[in-house]
């Protein structure tokens, strides 16, 4: 009888295979902002996964909860309910020191507004996360120069951000995000403040980083070029993920994109 039971059970179990390697997994995220008595639901149960080494784009109109989702999966904010797993770790369980470690070494952030520290040179900006990681100054300096060379700014290391164009500033931000060789790069509309051509360069650079260093890149974006270049696209609408698709399956000529 027991044998039959086992057999029976095996019929219902999925065939054994390597489980998908989710570097980020978000389950049922909700986020409510309270302004006085008024409540704003930025997210209403969004769930998503990002595979290791994937170029994932999140798309949605403004006010759809894109940035909130981005902040939640980047451990920059706590969800009202729901769970975020980064490398299988439930980040709600982490204390502030552990979160700081995670932000320092696992995740690199790229912002729409670059968020470079204006008074520091490019080199010092890139060296900052290295200093937080406790890396020795000489080694960090060399490593930072290599990162800047990687993004094509090897000749501008001692310039201040204000002396650079928007595209160059975003390159510095990308070099800074790569400072401690993170597993994930989170980019919140990285091309929104750049012109068409510079934006494309940035997309190519991110794609190159993904190829060369196998980093997972997650970006919130409207940029058509960026969507086309990504491995997978998620649509977010009114605080929920409503659709997921590969760029090959999407008609970019449709009215949705224009």
């Amino acid at each position: 009888m027991a044998i039959t039971n086992d057999k029976l059970r095996s019929l219902f179990e999925p065939p054994a295979q390597a489980p998908p390697d989710h570097v980020i997994r978000a389950v049922g995220l909700t986020k409510v902002y309270r302004m006085g008595t008024e409540e704003t639901h930025a997210l209403r149960g969004a769930s998503m996964q990002a595979l290791r080494g994937e170029y994932l784009s999140i798309m949605g109109p403004s006010g759809s909860g894109k940035s909130t989702l981005f902040n939640l999966i980047g451990a920059l904010q706590k969800p009202t309910s729901g769970k975020v797993y980064i490398d299988q770790v439930d980040i709600a369980q982490l204390d502030t020191e552990e979160l700081a470690w995670l932000r320092c070494r696992k995740i690199g952030y790229i912002f729409q507004t670059f968020n470079l520290i204006q008074v520091m040179t490019c080199l010092e900006n890139v060296m900052l996360p290295m200093a937080y990681a406790g890396r020795e100054a000489e080694e960090a300096r060399e490593s930072a120069i290599r990162k800047l060379e990687l993004v094509g700014l090897g000749h501008r290391v001692l310039h201040k951000p204000a002396e650079l164009s928007g595209g160059q500033q975003q390159r510095v931000a990308i070099a800074r995000a790569m400072a401690n060789d993170p597993a994930i790069i989170l980019a919140d509309e990285p091309t929104a403040n750049l012109d068409q051509k510079t934006g494309e360069e940035m997309i190519e650079l991110l794609a190159y980083l993904k190829q060369t260093f196998a980093v997972t890149i997650i970006s919130a974006t409207h940029d058509l070029k960026m969507l086309q270049r990504s491995d997978r696209i998620l649509w977010i609408e009114d605080g929920r993920i409503v659709k997921a698709a590969r760029p090959d399956d999407i008609d970019f000529q449709s009215s949705e994109f224009h």
Binding site: D87, Q88, V89, E97, E98, G134
Partner: peptide
């Protein structure tokens, strides 16, 4: 489930170096 180590606090000397650099910059 993999472990996440704590971010080590930088020693005072390193913090002071960051500060002096910051003030100079």
């Amino acid at each position: 489930m993999s472990r996440v180590p704590e971010q080590i606090d930088l020693p005072l000397r390193v913090a002071a170096t960051i500060v002096v650099q910051g003030l100079r910059i």
